[in-house]
Computed example of a mutant assay.
Amino acid sequence: MARTVRPSGVEAMLGEEELIVSKTDLKGRITYANDVFIRMAKYSYRELMGAPHSLIRHPDMPRCVFKLLWDTLETRHEIFAYVVNLAKDGSHYWVFAHVTPTLDDQGNIVGYHSNRRRPDRGPIERISPIYKALSAEEARHANARDGMRASFDMMVGLLDKQGVGYDEFVLSL
């Protein structure tokens, strides 16, 4: 599924009471997608199964937020984040995501589970300029890894300046 989707600028809205649910394996490949996810992402069930969850990554979404997500999940903790996703037709949709590791009886991570709901507009308006600045920092670097590290440091600096942790920051938006 190596195809490039170009953002159209058209925003799709998740229903007020709808919930997107997906599960992935340890490598982030989709193992389950509910009907709402399939509809919003505009991929078929067959296209989604086994595909990397990054398939719906919007290019305006800073990579450093996903680094934070994966770093947090590796510690067996949950994380909340505002995320803009890109559908197969180029439309985008915002979600408030809650991602948790799935543990076996011995406490080993065996996969990941994510529930996403429609966010309020206020937090999106507040997080968008921050994401834009983080993405611009990433783009300033020729090497993607260096860019991601620089934007991650920028995000940590923002949190330190406000004297809050990431969870507190996200929930305060």
Rank of each mutant, 00 (worst) to 15 (best):
A51P: 04
D105H: 13
Y45G: 02
A87Q: 10
A97V: 09
F66C: 07
D71Q: 07
V83E: 05
G50S: 04
Y82A: 10
L48H: 02
K42M: 01
V65Q: 04
F96C: 05
M40T: 03
E78W: 12
Y45N: 09
L48I: 02
E47Y: 00
H92G: 14
A97F: 10
P59N: 09
V65G: 05
Y43C: 00
V83N: 04
R63H: 14
I79E: 06
L86F: 02
H53R: 02
D105C: 11
Y43P: 00
D104R: 03
E47D: 09
E47G: 00
K88I: 01
A51F: 01
P52F: 01
D89A: 00
A87V: 07
R46E: 13
A87E: 08
V99S: 10
V84L: 15
A51G: 03
R46A: 08
F66V: 06
V65C: 10
V83K: 03
A81L: 13
K67C: 11
A87G: 09
D60M: 06
Y43F: 05
D105R: 14
P101A: 12
R57I: 09
L68V: 12
F80V: 15
A97K: 09
L68P: 06
V99D: 07
W94F: 11
L86Q: 03
A87R: 08
S44G: 13
R63I: 13
H77M: 12
Y45V: 02
R76T: 14
A97H: 08
A81Y: 07
A97M: 08
P101I: 11
L73D: 10
T75P: 04
V83T: 11
D60C: 04
G90V: 00
A51R: 01
